[in-house]
Design a binder for these strands. Structure first.
Lengths: 218, 218
DNA sequence: TAGATTGTTAATCGATTAACAATC
DNA sequence: TAGATTGTTAATCGATTAACAATC
């Protein structure tokens, strides 16, 4: 009987994989050939079994008593995360955040290649930011289609976000990375990942609040 | 018997609360007085019971057949997230991302007030960015202490991140918002929230990869 | 060989979802 | 009152953690 391939993975696992990659990249620089999951779990304060299960998702096979090949593990994690291929992306909304993302060199490591930026503000259109041209947003769907763009990054305000998402869907974009504080409505075949700064800040400040309340009542 | 106060809350719930706030703010603009959790769950494609449980965390009490007061719910969610008080913050690392965060107006809505920025690069020190002065990083612990800074934002590279975190701990900062791709080591009483862009991008690209693999084999 | 480490199955824990009584 | 909605308890689901056999 053929083994059924899994088409999903636990999202918590997905979110831990980039951290493993940081540790492994350091070990590679230090010329280490093998690593155990105990080592990784100590570095990141995680349960070793959890690390082992996460790594297993990538299809890596380790050697008992030795561990996993550092280089192979890096390759497998990158492949699992989809960072082994280059993906062309466009960005809409060249405000502060959008500009910062255009200049974020690290994206190259993840295969993300922003080929064009868009805005509706005439003062921004025509500029070139970190080597990326800013075009009028109406031109986006056509360019996305023509250049077979995979990923659309939304860094506009909440009012324009749905509109922009609709244009991205028109341009047959497959994945949307949404920084706008808005729940987007898109067809089933389009993948949306929300990256609102407020979510992360809210976790920090609510934990701070809870710990303060605790202290007050002890 | 006195009711035991809970000092923690499910993190998934914390992460959903900001989205409720977006919906509620819109309803407030439209002058709606009451909202049911069915309404919210439809807007955000969530289970209504889940919404009800999340809202209950904030201590809100609803009226059967009517729902929750929009204004009261906004206030309660903000209080739960710790967004009802202003918190002073400092930011270390005035690169692209750091600069973008300094200019992000929306933080005011969350009570975050960045009062100073720091860098080790002499070319950046002395500048004023979006009204915030950039100072040499050595001055940070002292200023943090003197001004009773609550939150430290780390937007330096991975190599400097731990060093910066140590300085923040010296300055008695209570919460660290870490954008650097590095697992920080801090004392128990300091809260760290990681906000690496790579985590969110990894979720997007691995889901895209999985859906592509699926299509290939169907 | 002995023992460290992987791989996997079982147990536990916590979050989500379902069911339903209470309420206005 | 009837019925929509809240609040809460119970059932389910999925992720984490524990236990242990397999392996080099």
């Amino acid at each position: 009987m053929r083994k059924i391939r899994k088409f999903s993975a636990p999202e918590p696992s997905m979110r831990r994989l980039p951290a493993y990659l940081h540790v492994l990249t350091r070990l590679l620089r230090e010329n280490r050939l093998y690593v155990s999951c105990t080592f990784i779990s100590n570095e990141l304060y995680l349960d070793p079994t959890q690390v082992r299960k996460d790594l297993a998702l990538t299809g890596i096979v380790g050697k008992p008593r030795v561990g996993y090949s550092v280089q192979e593990l890096i390759d497998k994690i990158k492949a699992f995360l989809g960072w082994d291929v280059q993906r062309d992306a466009i960005l809409v909304g060249v405000g502060n955040l959008g500009t910062a993302l255009l200049g974020y060199q690290r994206f190259r490591l993840y295969g993300l290649n922003i080929v064009a930026a868009f805005d509706k503000d005439p003062r921004r259109i025509g500029k070139t930011i970190f080597g990326v041209d800013v075009l009028p947003v109406e031109k986006m769907p056509n360019l996305a289609l023509r250049k077979k763009i995979d990923i659309g990054i939304i860094t506009v305000g909440e009012d324009a976000a749905q509109e922009v998402a609709d244009l991205m869907v028109q341009g047959f974009i497959k994945g949307i990375w949404n920084f706008a504080p808005k729940a987007l409505i898109v067809p089933d075949n389009v993948i949306v990942e929300n990256a609102q700064l407020s979510v992360s800040l809210g976790v920090l400040t609510s934990k701070m609040k809870l710990s303060e309340t605790e202290k007050d009542t002890v």
